[in-house]
Design a protein around this nucleic acid. Structure first.
Lengths: 249, 249
DNA sequence: GAGCCCACTTGATCCTGATCAATGTTTCGC
DNA sequence: GCGAAACATTGATCAGGATCAAGTGGGCTC
């Protein structure tokens, strides 16, 4: 926990916080926010650095402010599976539990806003808005974890890659407050290895399938990481998803 | 939604409810419980019957009272993945969302306790205990969804089967308020096909791996469905899980 | 008891993605 | 500019699990 790469940032106000409208604190009244400010502090990590090891005692919960973190799990022989990809405003940790069930690692340079766990748990009971927002966020996480399970359990390597690209494209469009459309482009925030951990593949297979999608004209590459999507429809048709089912309403 | 196999049970009191100590309502004060009773009704389904189709409008949320339900998702060509296994006291549906994102099916004969969605959502805001308990349950679900992702993404067929058997053994022991131990036995609540949907395998592979574990002496079979575990340790060692990591505290 | 259905088992073969290995490309420090 | 290291691509081969195909056994109706 006392990591040399970890830096404690200066106390910042919530006023200019980039995630104030979507994080756990987004529903808070001014006085609730004030109480949160009293128990918060920032931490920053460089890309690749560990944030928490599975089994560690957790003295805080946190929100991702900027950058990307990964939750992952490792089997006895070293095989690892990413089980969560945490973007800005996503929540780390779990009130009411002492030790972390999964490893948390900084995928890119990362800044998080930590809340001391004990007082945060107290706030959860005494003020309704935090708990309500956390419930909403957790239900969303659960839904996307379930979609992810279908990707892991039933999709081919090609479909897995197409699905991941579609997810990143969608999130990226949402970040820019646009609809995903033709000609859109984005930077891949993950290495080939991180993608393989996300999708339950090897990095070689990831590389091959990205090449295959490129050769098929589904995507174009600008360098290793920048992806251009000529036709969003074409990308979606590679994911194997049932376009209707579950999307009617 | 108007299913011929569906039966509406008589109004029952919460007093003798078998799941009263673990369901969403378990934290409720007597007056909160009274308000819940006003908006609840029971439904029963036979094994194999659909409860909800993905995309359906949901006019209720519910708790599983008895029996087992499965959440699942289907790809365009019919491949299906189970993404949730709902046991007694587990929660179905999601406040604040209109249409179901996944199919829900009765795996065994099933009885659920439904709450009309609108008034339930109102209670969620007005009384704190329901939301707090639901948050806790949802966080638990998310943790086990993440373990399940590791099973789907990184484990071999044999490890998948061993993991599923270990999970069922553990739940079964918990139900009887015992610790899982040597010589324990239980009835498999799932068909080979349901197991294959759970684990992202084919039913043939499930059958073969169960036979393999039997031949290796890890389990014994009494008929097709009854499983005896001579050594719980031996079963765990087949799961591929890291016994230490994440379990230190 | 005959016949049927369903859940399951077992066998033979095929194919996708893993594994092992070499090579290419960028970025960085010096 | 050079060498090293990290990241990525591509090739050759292998194997685990899918697929296709029979066959078994228990429980059911008639």
């Amino acid at each position: 926990m006392t990591d040399t790469s970890m830096k404690i940032a200066d106390k910042k106000s919530c006023e200019n916080c980039p995630i104030q409208h979507s994080a756990v604190c987004s529903r808070c009244e001014p006085d609730e926010l004030r109480r949160l400010e009293e128990i918060k502090y920032y931490r920053s990590y460089e890309a690749g650095q560990p944030v928490i090891w599975a089994g560690d005692h957790m003295e805080f919960v946190a929100s991702v402010v900027s950058g990307i973190a990964a939750l992952s799990q490792t089997l006895e022989d070293g095989r690892t599976q990413m089980v969560g990809l945490l973007l800005p405003s996503d929540f780390i940790g779990r009130p009411g539990r002492d030790s972390a069930p999964f490893d948390v690692t900084a995928v890119t340079d990362l800044t998080i806003c930590c809340f001391r766990k004990k007082p945060f748990e107290a706030l959860l009971v005494s003020t309704p808005h935090i708990g309500q927002r956390l419930l909403e966020m957790t239900l969303d996480e659960l839904d996307s974890a379930r979609d992810w399970m279908t990707i892991l359990g039933r999709k081919t390597a090609r479909e897995k890659i197409a699905s991941l690209l579609a997810i990143i494209a969608r999130r990226n469009a949402a970040l820019n407050k646009e609809m995903p459309g033709n000609g859109m482009s984005f930077e891949l925030p993950l290495t080939r290895e991180a993608m393989s951990d996300y999708l339950g593949l090897t990095l070689e297979t990831v590389s091959r399938q990205i090449s295959a999608l490129r050769k098929a004209g589904v995507i174009e590459l600008d360098g290793k990481r920048r992806v251009v999507v000529p036709s969003y429809e074409a990308l979606l048709s590679e994911t194997g998803d049932d376009v209707d089912g579950g999307m009617i309403a």
